[in-house]
Simulated scan of single mutants.
Amino acid sequence: MAEDYAAKMSRKTDAELRDYVTNRYQYREEAVLAALTELAQRGTPEPTAAGLIAELEVSKQETDRRELAVREQEAEKEQARRIARGEADPETATETGPALYSPGTITVFSVLFSMVAGGIMLALNLRTLRRTGPALLVVAFMLVYLVGGGYLLFWLKQLYGNQYNWLGSFFNLPAVLIYNLFFWPRYIGPQPYQSRPWLAPLLICGLIMLAFYYFALRFQGAMPTV
């Protein structure tokens, strides 16, 4: 329950009220505003009251925003602890928290399209959580994986011909496992979140795939026949 500063200030002496104004940075904004109001009601207003009130109102809004952010963060941590202890249903927990692409969505996009699609979605999750360092780490992992994995497949093909072409079908699988078993637990964890809609990414990936096949067919058609 919020403290009744008006009633509290009505019991203060004028000197005590002036102390609230003079040393206002030591008190809550609501208390100082109530002291200014009480002085005005007693017929002894503070000469600079108008400027002080405007300053205190701005400061109060900033304080309220900080305290709300702290309360929301604590609520999310408590909900995560309850989920970890099995005291809360994860289905219910998704009603609160930031909007993130779920591990299932990241897995499906990685398998259907590419590990790049899943990695971008994971990096967007980390960006939403304002974890820029881990997001850049995911991007770096994707680049290293593409170069290293592509070189490995090329080396196997040069060494054994087409005998190991089937490995290309499993190219995305190790990346998916690293997304779900390393990056998500380490940098996101069991915190509650809302499932982010996946229709827009699906349309974008679909259009990219169509464009890729279109230009691939055009390129094959343009090649001279022997």
Rank of each mutant, 00 (worst) to 15 (best):
G86R: 06
E87Q: 11
A88W: 12
D89G: 05
P90M: 13
P90C: 08
E95W: 01
G97Y: 01
P98L: 07
P98C: 01
A99C: 03
A99V: 00
A99Y: 03
L100G: 07
P103R: 02
G104V: 12
T105Q: 10
T105S: 08
T107S: 11
F109Q: 05
S110W: 03
L112Q: 07
S114F: 03
G118K: 07
G118W: 10
G118C: 09
G119A: 10
I120D: 01
M121G: 12
L122R: 07
L122Q: 11
A123S: 15
L124S: 10
L124Q: 14
L129H: 06
R131L: 14
G133I: 04
P134L: 04
L137E: 04
L137N: 04
V138K: 01
V139M: 11
A140D: 04
M142L: 15
M142S: 06
V144F: 01
G149A: 12
L152T: 11
L152G: 10
L153Q: 13
F154A: 14
F154R: 14
L156H: 07
K157P: 00
Q158S: 15
L159P: 00
Y160A: 15
N162M: 00
Y164K: 04
Y164T: 04
W166Q: 05
L173Y: 11
P174F: 10
I178A: 13
L181M: 05
F183Q: 06
F183N: 02
W184E: 15
W184R: 05
P185T: 09
R186E: 04
R186S: 11
Y187V: 05
Y187E: 03
I188C: 07
G189E: 13
P190S: 14
